[in-house]
Design a protein around this nucleic acid. Structure first.
Lengths: 344, 344
DNA sequence: ATTATCACCTAAAACGTTTTAGATGTCAAG
DNA sequence: CTTGACATCTAAAACGTTTTAGGTGATAAT
C-alpha cells in the first residue's frame, strides 16, 4: 500500500493537518517541524494521492484534447506536432493531458459532455473549428473554460488563436499569378471547416485583385488527405488541360496531387505548379519540395495550451483573440508558368 | 454547482446509499425505487463525479501513454495512427487516456514515476522498447501493470505485442536479392531501439542465406526521420556508386532517401531500389510508391490497449506475448536491378 | 495579575462516491 | 406466538487530501 499523510502523522506523533500544511509550506507551521516532516516524508517514500487532492480541491489539474480523426487510418503528421506542443506546455505547468480520438459527428458530443459534466477536466482545447460549431455552442452554454484553435462564424465571443489563412492563401495565389499563371485550380478543405472559407476567400480575392475572373468550375473540395488530393488531381488535370497551377488547402492534399500530376506525365514545377498549406516536415522532402504556407504548428500547440491554462487559473488573458500571420515558403513545386507571360 | 447524489436523496427523502445502489442497479433495492431514482436523476441532470468515484474505488479508470518524441518538430504519422487505435479502444471500454509527450532521456523517467507513484493511471502502455529498457525495469520493480509494444533484451517476463520485424526485413531483403540486387545498403534505426537489432539481423540473415557477404561499411544508422534518411541517402550514393538497393528501417527514412536519390540523378525503381518499413499512408503516395513492410499500426494500437485493460482488470491474458507476422508490400520503388542478372 | 499577542498546532469537516454491516418490517412456516 | 427468511433500506465508515475554525501555551505589555 502507498504511504499516506496519516502514516507520516502516526510515525511523528502529530496530526495529518500538520503534515499537510508542513508539506504545503504554510507559515503557521514551525520551520523545524516543516523540515522534519519533509524529511520523513521523503524517507518513507511518500507521494501525494492526486485523486484525493482533486476531490478536495475540486479541480483536476487536467485539460482535455479531443482529436477529430477521420477513420482508423488517421495519420496526419500535423496532429502529432500539435499534440507535442500541447503536451510539452501542459507538462511544464504540471497539468495532465487527457486525449480522446473521435471522428467528427459519430458521438463526438458525447465525449465533450462526458468531459465537462463528469468533471474529468478543468478545460478543453478545440481544434479545426467548424461552421456553426456545436462544440463551441455547448461549451459556451455550459460556461466551461476552453480555447479554440480557429475562429468560428458564431458571433459569440470566446478565446481563440487562429492563423490568418486568408492572407496565407492570398499570398500564395499572388505568388503564382506573379509567376505568370492564369488558370489556377483550387482544392478546398471540407466546407464545414471554418478555415476552408477563409482560405477560399483568400484565393478569390487574389484572383479578383489581378482581374482574373473566379471560375467556380476550378474550385474543388477535398478531404485533407493524400488520397483525396490524388483523386482530385487526376480529375482536374484530365478535365482541364489548360490549368497550370493547383492550390491545395493543405500539404497532404498537395502531396497527393503531386502524385497524380506525375502519373499523368507532367513535370511538377515545370508544367504544373502545386502548392500546399501547413509546411509539415514532409513538404521539404517532397519531390520537388513543396511551396507552401507555414503554420508554426508546434508553437501554436504550446500557445493555445498556455492560453487555456491561464483561463483555467482565472488569470485574465491580455489578448484572447490572437491572429497569427503565416509565412509563405517558396520551394521548387512552383515555378514560372510555361505558357505564361509574366513580366512580359 | 453540479447535482450530487445527496441532492437526489434529499429530494426523494431517501438515503444517499439507496441512491448510489439504485443507480448501480443493485438487487437489494426495490425495482420500483430503482426506477424512481433513475428517473429523478435523469430529470435533475445528475452526472456522477468521477473523481469521488475514483477515490472510493481506488482506481482511476485511466491508462497512460507516453509518446517518445524527438524534438519539437515531431510529426511521425505512425504515432497518430497508433494513438487513434489506442484511443478508440480505450474509449470503447470507458477508459480515459492520459497522454504525455517527452523526448527519451530528458526527464522521461520522472513522468513514469509520477504516473505510477501518484496513482494517476491504472496501467501504462510502452512503445519503442529499448535495449536495457529502464522503463520496463522500473515498472516490473514497482509491479505496475503495463503492456509493451516491442520486446526487450531483459530476460524478465512481461506482456508484450511485437511485430516480427526480423522476418519483415528478411522478406524485403530476399525480395531485392531475387530482383538481382547484389550490393544492398542498409539504414538502421538507432541502436538503442530494440527493433533495430531484429531488423538488422533479418538483413544479415537474408544476405548470408544467399551467399552475399555482410559488408559492415554498407550499414548506416539513422534517426527514423526524413531528413536523416535524406542525409544518409546522399552519403551512401556518393560514396558507393555500385550500391543498387537501399533498405531503410522505416518509411520516413526511405522517403528521405528517395529525395536524395532523385537529387543525385538516379531513377528510383530503375537505377536504385529503395524500401521502407511500416507502410504509412504516405508510402502509397510517394513517387514512386514505396515497397515496404506493413505493420497494422491501428490494429496494434487497439490490441495493446485491449491487452492492458485485461491486465488492469485482472483477467488473465490467454496469450501475453504476441508476435505478429508482417506483410511484404511490393510497389514500384523496387524493381529489377539494371546491373543484375536475376533468373539468368 | 491580568490581558493581549503571537507562534504553533490540530480536531473536525469537507469533497462525492461506494461499501459494509446491520436495521426494519413483512410474511410464512412451525 | 415465535422464529426464520427475506426484501428493502440506511447510518456510518471509508478513500486521502485540504481547509476551517479554534485551541494551547508562552511571552510581552499594562
Amino acid at each position: 500500500m502507498a504511504i499516506t499523510q496519516q502514516d507520516i502523522a502516526n510515525k511523528l506523533g502529530i496530526s495529518v493537518a500538520t503534515v499537510s500544511r508542513a508539506l504545503g509550506g504554510y507559515s503557521d507551521i514551525a520551520k523545524s517541524t516543516q523540515e522534519h516532516v519533509k524529511k520523513t516524508a521523503q524517507e518513507m517514500g511518500y507521494r501525494p494521492n492526486v485523486i484525493a487532492r482533486r476531490l478536495q480541491k475540486q479541480q483536476t489539474d487536467t485539460i482535455g484534447f479531443i482529436i477529430p480523426t477521420h477513420g482508423p487510418r488517421f495519420s496526419d503528421p500535423y496532429f502529432t506536432e500539435l499534440l507535442t506542443g500541447i503536451g510539452n506546455e501542459a507538462a511544464e505547468q504540471d497539468y495532465d493531458l487527457l486525449v480522446s480520438t473521435r471522428a467528427a459527428g459519430s458521438g463526438e458530443m458525447k465525449i465533450y459532455q462526458r468531459m465537462v459534466s463528469e468533471q474529468r477536466v478543468d478545460g478543453l482545447l478545440i481544434v479545426r473549428t467548424r461552421q456553426d460549431d456545436q462544440r463551441i455552442r455547448y461549451l459556451i452554454k455550459e460556461n466551461f473554460p476552453f480555447v479554440a484553435f480557429g475562429r468560428s462564424d458564431t458571433n459569440a465571443n470566446y478565446p481563440y488563436l487562429d492563423v490568418d489563412s486568408q492572407s496565407g492563401i492570398y499570398q500564395i495565389t499572388q505568388h503564382l499569378i506573379d509567376l505568370g499563371h492564369k488558370k489556377l485550380a483550387y482544392i478546398s478543405a471540407p466546407k464545414q471547416l471554418q478555415f476552408a472559407h477563409h482560405r477560399l476567400t483568400g484565393y478569390k480575392q487574389a484572383l479578383l485583385a489581378n482581374n482574373i475572373p473566379v471560375d467556380t468550375d476550378l474550385i474543388f473540395c477535398g478531404e485533407l488527405t493524400e488520397s483525396s488530393g490524388y483523386k482530385l488531381g487526376l480529375k482536374i488535370l484530365t478535365k482541364y488541360n489548360d490549368v497550370t497551377a493547383i492550390i491545395a488547402s493543405n500539404d497532404l492534399m498537395a502531396l497527393g496531387t503531386m502524385k497524380a500530376t506525375r502519373e499523368l506525365g507532367y513535370e511538377i514545377g515545370e508544367d504544373i505548379a502545386i502548392t500546399g498549406f501547413d509546411d509539415v516536415p514532409l513538404a521539404t522532402h517532397a519531390h520537388p519540395p513543396l511551396t507552401t504556407v507555414r503554420q508554426p504548428i508546434y508553437e501554436i500547440g504550446r500557445q493555445i495550451c498556455r492560453m487555456l491554462l491561464q483561463t483555467v487559473n482565472n488569470t485574465p488573458l491580455e489578448n484572447d483573440q490572437v491572429l497569427l500571420k503565416p509565412e509563405l515558403i517558396i520551394r521548387e513545386s512552383s515555378k514560372l508558368s510555361k505558357g505564361g507571360d509574366a513580366y512580359s
